[in-house]
Simulated assay, not measured.
Amino acid sequence: ELVAKAKGGAPLMYASGGPGVPGHLASEMLLEQTKVRMEHVPYRGPAPATQAVLGGEVACGFLATPTVLPHVKSGRLVALAVSSEAPSSLAPDVPTLAKALNQPGLDVSFRLVLQAAKATPPAVVAEIEKHAAEIMKQADVRERLKNYDLTAVGSTSAQAQQVMTAEMKRWEPVVKRLGLKAE
């Protein structure tokens, strides 16, 4: 319905927590996939972006599940889809974007990767890697991450590098199209 509405009339505006944040990039990937145009309205963080959607300043926004879930539960917002490949454990009744748009394989989710400076000695990297893997296995850590709609993976540095390389390849066209630069 949102895509149809965006195709059918005056341009809609969407909120994000700022230029280049996950919600901005996810929205732009959605717009590219659906061949729809909307105007981006960047806010200074997820709270003001959420308030803009709640207040009707903008039509929608890709905002973090924990940020908007209280407003969805209260009936003030409608959750249309989650950006991840798999349904969210926090909002299991909300379809994935791929399912909502009937586009199998569509995934506009993000990965968080623990990083260290390139000059970090290999022994230190190994120690960090070891402790990080141990921490990611702890039930209380996994539960806390789940409350933020995050899934603990825990991997080696080589696996993390593979993830980062794949993510850069996936997001590069969107970043280039938008003309975003690291600051």
Results as ranks from 00 to 15, higher is better:
Y14E: 03
Q103P: 00
V141F: 14
V163S: 11
R177M: 10
A86H: 03
L101H: 04
L69Q: 00
A133D: 09
F110H: 09
S84G: 11
G45N: 11
G154C: 02
Q161V: 09
L69F: 00
Q161S: 14
P46M: 13
K169N: 12
V125K: 13
V108A: 05
F62V: 00
P122K: 08
R144L: 13
P173V: 02
G56R: 00
H24F: 07
A91C: 10
M164L: 14
E127I: 00
D93Y: 09
V78W: 08
T65E: 06
E134D: 15
K118T: 13
Y14M: 04
V36D: 14
Y43L: 01
V163L: 14
P87I: 10
V78Y: 08
P42D: 03
G154R: 00
G56I: 00
A47Y: 03
P42R: 10
A10K: 10
E57P: 02
V94A: 13
N147F: 07
S83K: 01
L12E: 06
E85N: 08
G56K: 00
R177T: 15
L69R: 00
V78I: 12
A64E: 14
C60D: 10
L114W: 03
G179E: 07
P19K: 14
A100Y: 04
V124G: 00
G9E: 04
V108F: 05
V78R: 03
R111D: 15
S155M: 10
S74D: 07
P66M: 04
M13Q: 14
Q161D: 13
F62G: 01
K73I: 03
A59Q: 12
G23Y: 05
G8R: 01
